[in-house]
Each structure stands twice: as C-alpha cells, then as structure tokens.
C-alpha cells in the first residue's frame, strides 16, 4: 500500500511508525514530511534501510518550497502532483499519516 507522510520526522513519530509498520509498498513524503528525504537528517539511515522493501517518493514542489531539493537522499524518487495522483491510483489502498 501507499503511505503518505506529511509531518517532519523530527517533530512527529509518523514516519518511524510507518517504517516499523509498512512491510512493503511505498512511502510518499509531502509537505514537512519531505525533510525526511534530505541528506544529513537524523532519520537518513533509517529511511535508507527501509528502502530495501519500501519505495520512497518525495513531492518536488514541497522540496523546492523548502529549499532542500539539492540535498535529496540517494534512492528517493521525486514526483510532481501528477505523480502523486498516479501513485494513489497505482496502489489498492493508501493511508495518510496525518
């Protein structure tokens, strides 16, 4: 399934919960959630480890707005709003970890 995370990993435990619960499928990071996909963030190693079983996507416009598009963690795929829609359509279920 698709897990959508919109909170910063250092402010809320949403991402960690997903990493522990989401056996496979994909994570889409949006809004403040995109900080998780930046190099040097404290969750970088945990996110990379999860990439073995989960695909990780980040929303481009949210990376740009926050000035962090140039420090994207390796292995993360950037998508636009059209890609967001495609992902929601691709997976049978999705969960927004608000």
């Amino acid at each position: 399934m698709l897990h959508i995370v919109n909170k910063s990993p250092l402010e809320r435990p949403s991402l960690d919960t997903v990493l522990q619960a989401g056996a496979d499928g994909a994570i889409l990071l949006i809004e403040d959630g995109v900080y998780a996909a930046t190099r040097g963030n404290a969750v970088e190693d945990r996110l990379k480890k999860a990439m073995g079983t989960l695909k990780v996507y980040a929303l481009g416009p949210d990376l740009d707005a926050r000035g962090v598009a140039d420090r994207l963690t390796e292995g993360v795929t950037v998508v636009g709003y059209d890609g967001f829609v495609d992902l929601v359509a691709e997976y049978k279920t999705n969960q927004s970890w608000l």
Binding site: S8, Y35, D62, D64, A65, R66, G67
Partner: peptide, 23 residues
C-alpha cells in the same frame, strides 16, 4: 530551535505550492 531552523534554509522556491515565500 528544532524544526524552526528550517525557516532560515536558503533557496525557498514556493511557486509550485502556490504560497508566498517569506525568506
């Protein structure tokens, strides 16, 4: 402090999210 330091990160390009950049 905490995520507040992100407010000062340079290079905000907010056109894509339709919000005013206040950098």
């Amino acid at each position: 402090m905490d995520d507040g330091v992100y407010q000062l990160k340079k290079g905000h390009q907010t056109k894509g999210i339709g919000m005013k950049a206040f950098e």
